[in-house]
Amino acid sequence: MSTVNIKHKGDRLYYAILYTVLGLFCFTTVFPFIYSLVLSFNDGYDALRGGIYFWPRKFTLENYEMAFAHPQIMTSFRVTVLRTLVTTVLSVGLTAMMAYGLTEKKLPGRTGIVFYFFFTTLFSGGLIPTYVLYRQMGLINNFWVFVLPGLFSFYNTVIMRTSFEGIPAALTESARIDGAKEMTIFTRLIIPLSLPVFATIALFVGVGNWNDWFAGAFYIQFKKDLVPASTLLYQLISEASFESSMSTTTGQMQMNEQLMMAKATGTTPESLRLTFVIIIVTPILMVYPFLQRYFVKGVMIGSIKG
């Protein structure tokens, strides 16, 4: 056992530097979040004077009251929650089916089927043919554009299949001898034994959906009640960066009017934006640390076999 006694002076200095550097690294990682958290709890007009970094100077909940009373922000979160739940449930179930289908090594045509899936990771039609497909399928301005395109991923399937292959073959074989159908083996044996990998894939798919702003920005046009939270935040930032020159479309008009109204209270467009950031980030923050053990394993499998 190489137990480490910090006995030499050089050692002590070494560890002091190491721990300080990593401490600074953590600070740069976390500070932007703390900064906007603090500003979201501070009066927006007071914040314009600057100088707030770690603690609110003029504490207020008005930003949050404003955000939660804002009809478009609330609609956008409903869209985000709904799309995330629907996609995650469907995707995990279907990915598991696909992964289990690939575990049978003797399946006639298996190599060809694997290549059929794998090839799509090398070459894709690209943005425009995909857009044409969505238009032809009627997915533009349709809720299902958030769900259907994200149902499968080769990477996630590989992670799941590897996990399934770790289940002792003796278990499935004995179930088969007892006359169990493949469907029964899948639902009664494979799924209960693979909950960690289900959690991992659910996290990956769920976070991806929660964060997706692209579909809402380019496949949803003039339908405000289908704009997800990430897309709304994107619209707020680009509106802010292009000043008012962009405020001609209806959605942004409403946003501006709302922000004008905000001037009566202690809320500025900036403080509302940062509050929005905190509201979007919080659910993710509450989930990922608890799944760490599982997704770390998933990443390892994915990068070795993927």
Binding site: P32, I237, A240, V277
Partner: peptide
Amino acid sequence: HFVSWVVVVALLTKL
């Protein structure tokens, strides 16, 4: 890793 680029850009815009 778990936050979107939209969030990162919102944070950067303020910072």
